[in-house]
Design a binder for these strands. Structure first.
Lengths: 168, 168
DNA sequence: ATCAAGCGGACCAAATTGGTCCTGTTTAAA
DNA sequence: TTTAAACAGGACCAATTTGGTCCGCTTGAT
């Protein structure tokens, strides 16, 4: 279960759509600007989201992207799997290759359990829930135009486990 | 939380030691042979394990590796962190860089929770427990010598979620 | 002394990540 | 009916990570 930038950006992009009235069409560079994502990369990601039927695109002037499902119905797991494909925590759990350590490999069971826990968390969280907690960030409009503001001090909310420094 | 071959091999290597009486010294190529791991790569990994005080090495003839702690006291999480370093599910949770999406990034919270679940699983499993479930596998001796045997049919035990094929 | 074994650094190829860029198509609007 | 706006999709790219190999060095037992 590898969470890359692409998944992060996909979720942030969906949050940008979810903040708006359902069905509203938003241009790529607007989303990219709000969430501070490279627009060309976000384009690729939204292509995936469109193929995965999470958003619909319309072309031509006045075009852009809109949600095709309610934010309440889209889980984080769906988003991740649409952009990353059917991912797995290790190659042991990969659909194609499978575990190569053969017969009684105890590790597979362990990894499978860990992966299931992760999937539980992600499948139990919807875009709507995230949107509720999310403040767009990145760019903030002030008197002189657009300026990047970063609140380093707020990182600590990210998780208790961040503090534990282990051996390297 | 990225589980690479190195972590897998490290655990398998420790299992090989755990199968033996505590304190027994085992050579690298014996472990590598039992678990079907490239010996030179396993050497690197055991160097890490030695630095992480999970095993002790002795050099010269008759040398090899031995556990310095009981299999019951070594958790999977420790092993992973010794070989991979302080890993995180995403860059958002990385100690150094931290979340770059600024202020109210809801994703960090989500990722942190998922990561904590994974850590729970790994910190709740010991090498001893794994050793109990593990059958060395990989190589099986038969009449004509050594032959690689793979039990494809046993993959399915790895997790129910493996079957769900999502769009790519 | 000598041989067996791990140590540690240099090196390597392949895959993945995180993008960019350019040439289409589609569509709305002038 | 142009034309310009906007996404689609493929090619390409550099940097990093992964998964190793190799070789000369050091250590330790006989």
């Amino acid at each position: 279960m590898q969470i890359t930038r692409a998944s992060e950006y996909a979720m942030l992009g969906l949050l940008a759509l979810a903040r708006r009235p359902m069905g509203e069409v938003v241009m790529l560079d607007v989303v990219a600007g709000e969430e501070d994502i490279p627009v060309s990369f976000l384009g690729k990601i939204f292509q995936s989201l469109a193929r995965g039927k999470l958003v619909k695109s319309s072309r031509g002037s006045g075009g852009g992207f809109m949600l095709v499902r309610t934010p309440e119905s889209i889980t984080a797991l769906e988003v991740i799997e649409v952009v990353e494909g059917p991912v797995s925590l290790t190659r042991c759990l990969d659909e194609d290759t499978g575990c190569e350590h053969a017969s009684g490999c105890a590790l597979c069971g362990l990894f499978a359990e860990a992966q299931d826990r992760v999937k539980e968390v992600f499948s139990g969280t919807t875009v709507a829930q995230l949107a509720g907690r999310h403040i767009p960030g990145g760019m903030v409009r002030n008197a002189r135009g657009r300026e990047r503001i970063v609140f380093r001090s707020q990182q600590s909310q990210a998780g208790s486990s961040l503090a534990e420094k282990s051996a390297v």
